[in-house]
């Protein structure tokens, strides 16, 4: 627990990764998301991170893959309205509230995923 996720762990335990993406991305994301919080092999963490990336991907410039480290505003060149629209979908998918006042705190996709994980089950 607490160490970086490995390809074999992912493959062996069949964690619910909702979109297909490079395993390095998942490793990187979980390492950041769970230094001492949710466990790295927690399927919830992996699935939240994956869904955030999937939701943001349509906003990425052609040919660019959204990763946990992608800076939402500067790397994706998307405006605040698009970020807010992506957040609407994330709120409904996870059945949580993400107040607009919080958005400025989320620089990267993994920041957003970490916040969602912290809110799960709390609305």
């Amino acid at each position: 627990m607490g160490g970086p996720i490995t390809k074999s762990q992912t493959g062996d335990n069949g964690h619910a990764v909702v979109v297909s993406m490079p395993l390095e991305v998942i490793e990187d994301d979980c390492a950041r998301l769970s230094p001492d919080g949710p466990t790295v092999d927690d399927p919830v963490v992996a699935s939240v991170a994956a869904f955030v990336l999937q939701t943001l991907q349509p906003y990425a410039p052609a040919g660019q893959t959204v990763t946990p480290k992608t800076d939402i505003m500067t790397d994706l060149h998307i405006d605040s309205l698009s970020v807010m629209n992506a957040v609407l979908d994330l709120e409904d998918h996870f059945d949580i509230s993400i107040p607009l006042n919080r958005l400025a705190q989320f620089r990267t996709a993994e920041d957003l995923a970490a916040y969602i994980v912290s809110r799960l089950g709390k609305h």
């Binding site: 807010m84 957040v87 609407l88 709120e91 509230s97 993400i98 107040p99 607009l100 006042n101």
Partner: peptide, 13 residues
Amino acid sequence: ACKQTQASAIRFK
């Protein structure tokens, strides 16, 4: 107004 208040501002469709 959302920026001028400490209330949680939540957007609906």
